[in-house]
Amino acid sequence: MNEVIKTILNHRSLRQFEDKSLTDEQIRTIVTSAQAASTSSFIQAYSIIGVKDKEKKKKLAEVVGNQPYVEHNGHFFVFCADLYRHSHIGEQEQKDVLPSIESTEKFMVALIDAALAAQNAAIAAESMGLGICYIGGIRNNLEEVQKLLKTPERVIPLFGLAVGYPTKITGQKPRLPFEHIYHEDEYQQDQEVYLQQLQNYDQIISSYYMERTGGKRADRWTEQMANMLERKSRMYMKEFIQKNKLDLR
């Protein structure tokens, strides 16, 4: 097993970091690694905003739900879907690009491009001995995030990535079984097998929480997901995206 695969398989979300900033060289390495990711039709429909300003990080931490690791880390990256530059390209080249830019397809391209870039960045950071944590709470209040980051129309902050020198290494959460994730030739739909896989995984996750919390928690994964999905969250998203002139068709 090579070192790249070892880094990938050793991933875990870390939330406690030293009070030590990343160097400019480290930041550049992480961002250029992100840029090396595949991008649909070379469109490069994303941008990355690095947040160094301590007061701005503090405000972001409050906006995303009072998550301290948004404020206290080595560097905070915000990955954005970005079709703003492409609207300017249309004007520059005198082409009517707006129907394409304002399509669901191009919005999906921007989301996928940003996610691919972010995962490259995460692996690069982890390979440097740093810890990372993705922050989906960025989408809790995108209007406030946009104000803080001064993003123009057609730019949607999607998620954050806290990076830093970890002070505590947590255990690794077991993932769904390989057989439940990987389907060969066609989607396997044997309900008995499918449900048994979930039940087996529930036992694994329950044991994981029991051990990690000294018996204080024993959540099953399906229980956890059902409770989470029952609660409506970020239901403003479609309206917000449309207001920002994306995903209109």
Rank of each mutant, 00 (worst) to 15 (best):
M1D: 04
T7L: 06
R15A: 02
F17S: 05
K20E: 12
L22C: 07
D24T: 01
Q26Y: 09
T32W: 11
T32Q: 15
A37G: 09
T39D: 08
S41F: 09
F42A: 07
F42P: 00
F42V: 07
Q44P: 04
Y46Q: 13
Y46W: 13
S47F: 08
I49W: 11
D53G: 02
K54L: 04
K54T: 09
E55P: 01
K57R: 15
K58I: 00
K59S: 01
V63D: 02
G65S: 07
G65Q: 09
G65E: 03
N66P: 01
Q67N: 05
V70Y: 04
V70M: 06
E71P: 09
N73D: 05
G74Q: 06
H75Y: 14
F77H: 03
V78M: 10
V78G: 13
F79A: 06
C80Q: 09
C80S: 12
A81K: 10
D82C: 12
L83C: 13
Y84I: 00
Y84C: 13
I89R: 14
E91Q: 13
V97H: 02
L98R: 00
S100N: 03
E102D: 14
T104F: 12
E105Y: 11
F107L: 07
M108H: 13
L111P: 08
D113T: 01
D113H: 06
A114Y: 05
L116W: 03
Q119M: 11
I123E: 13
C133R: 11
G137N: 03
N140Q: 10
E143A: 11
E143T: 08
L149N: 03
K150Y: 00
P152W: 10
P157T: 01
P157W: 10
L161G: 08
L161M: 15
V163W: 08
V163T: 08
V163C: 12
I169V: 12
T170N: 05
K173Q: 07
K173W: 01
K173M: 10
P177Y: 05
H180R: 15
D185P: 00
D185A: 04
Y187F: 15
Q188R: 11
Q196C: 01
Q197R: 14
L198H: 13
Q199W: 01
Q199L: 14
Y201S: 07
S206I: 00
S207I: 00
Y209W: 15
Y209S: 02
E211L: 09
R212L: 15
T213S: 15
G214H: 12
R217E: 11
A218G: 06
T222L: 11
N227A: 05
E230D: 11
R231Y: 06
M235A: 12
L248M: 14
